[in-house]
Computed example of a mutant assay.
Amino acid sequence: MQELDFELDRDYVELNQLLKLSGICDSGGAGKAIVASGAVSVDGQLELRKTCKIHAGQTVQLDDIVIRVIAV
């Protein structure tokens, strides 16, 4: 399992943008497609909202990749 720490420098980041900014995909549009496919969970719950607000302290998982969102 690959674990990544994403340093959040604002109140929140949209889920599709988080996937892009953490290097999981090349664009926000690709991030939206990944979320829409049902492959992403937030804090252990399936998340289908492409622009769901992700805050510091949350964990996002896609297949075997875990992204921990931490405050700067």
Rank of each mutant, 00 (worst) to 15 (best):
R49K: 15
D26P: 00
A71R: 15
L15K: 13
I67A: 02
A56C: 06
L4V: 12
V42P: 02
E14K: 14
S41T: 12
S37G: 11
A36W: 00
D64Y: 03
Q2R: 14
R10W: 02
A39E: 14
A33H: 05
L48N: 13
T51L: 11
D63E: 14
Y12R: 08
V42M: 01
D63R: 15
D64V: 08
D63S: 13
I67S: 03
A56M: 06
L18H: 12
S22R: 11
G29Q: 10
D9L: 13
Q58V: 09
V69K: 08
D9A: 12
V69Y: 08
I54T: 04
S27G: 03
L19I: 12
A30D: 09
I67H: 06
V66F: 03
L18Y: 12
K32W: 00
A71Q: 14
A30K: 13
L15G: 05
Q58F: 08
V69S: 04
Q58C: 05
F6K: 07
C52H: 13
I70K: 15
D43F: 00
D5A: 07
N16T: 10
A56W: 07
G31A: 08
N16I: 06
Q45P: 00
V60N: 05
R68V: 06
D64H: 13
G23F: 11
G23W: 11
I24R: 06
D9V: 12
G29R: 06
K50F: 02
I24S: 01
A56Q: 10
K32Y: 02
V35R: 06
Q58Y: 04
V40T: 05
K50W: 10
I70H: 06
G28Y: 11
F6Y: 15
I34Q: 03
M1W: 04
A56I: 07
V66H: 01
V66G: 00
K20L: 13
V40F: 00
D64W: 02
I54F: 03
K53I: 06
V69F: 08
D5L: 07
Y12M: 02
M1F: 08
E3D: 06
L15I: 12
D26C: 04
R49H: 12
D43A: 01
L4T: 10
